[in-house]
Write a protein that binds this DNA or RNA. Structure first.
Lengths: 128, 128
DNA sequence: CAGAATCCGTTAAGATACTG
DNA sequence: CAGTATCTTAACGGATTCTG
């Protein structure tokens, strides 16, 4: 029994499956990258949104809430008027940047090959 | 201009975004793992399904089609009755196993911390 | 005014069942 | 084994509203 990472790799409780469900969401890996670049400094919500072009206020809010719930970021509210909210990667969140950097490196190195394969598949489909 | 992987990291054409869209699908990373373990040998469709407990025939078929289109797997049909279809990772697909292994390693090492953070968040919400 | 919360519509992954 | 049809669920995003 219990080949580790084998038998339970296929259940919904599989840690890899659950991690991919998180970093597979649209803005999480991007937030990790931006926050890691600023680490260990904090980044304000508005600044985060500025550095993550295309993210809406709502989606950034949701993403950061999920990351805070997961213990990936710390959230600090400055009791001013209006309030300013600052975010910073936890050590756990910072450690996640490592595998994410590997994924990014592979993507930048190899996605062109995937594109090429897709074009060839289209041609083959058109010819066939 | 052109900080590589920065400005265009936020467009839908961002290679990292597009890679995550692929390995974020439920069965792709699992298929890479199983096929990598067998590499360089081929694996039959039925054998793949057996080793990927929980995957339906359709989802495995769709997953393998997408991977073949992306050039991650080679597909070989044995002209028997009934036909037997064999799959094998391409060098490209095999290279993807490396960053995926990093992701798996992080997940197995740290997902428990994420679970702990979630429990604490629940408690804090219940108390607050 | 910053940022969170809510309503709502769109889109697509995924599962199930059935057909070829 | 592959393809089709239908259903459910959830991510995503827009627009709006609420709070200090």
């Amino acid at each position: 029994m219990s080949e580790p990472g084998r038998g339970d790799l296929f259940s919904p409780q599989c840690p890899t499956r659950r991690l991919l469900d998180r970093i597979g969401t649209k803005w999480t890996s991007m937030a990790v990258k931006v926050l890691a670049e600023a680490s260990p400094d904090e980044v304000r919500f508005a600044e985060l949104q500025r550095r993550m072009a295309g993210v809406s206020q709502k989606m950034l809010s949701v993403t950061l809430q999920n990351m805070a719930r997961d213990g990936l970021v710390d959230r600090r509210v400055e009791p001013t008027v209006p309030p300013r909210v600052h975010y910073r990667l936890t050590p756990l969140g910072l450690s996640l940047e490592e595998p994410l950097a590997m994924v990014r490196a592979w993507a930048e190195e190899h996605m062109a090959e995937i594109d090429l394969a897709n074009r060839r598949s289209e041609e083959a489909a058109a010819a066939g």
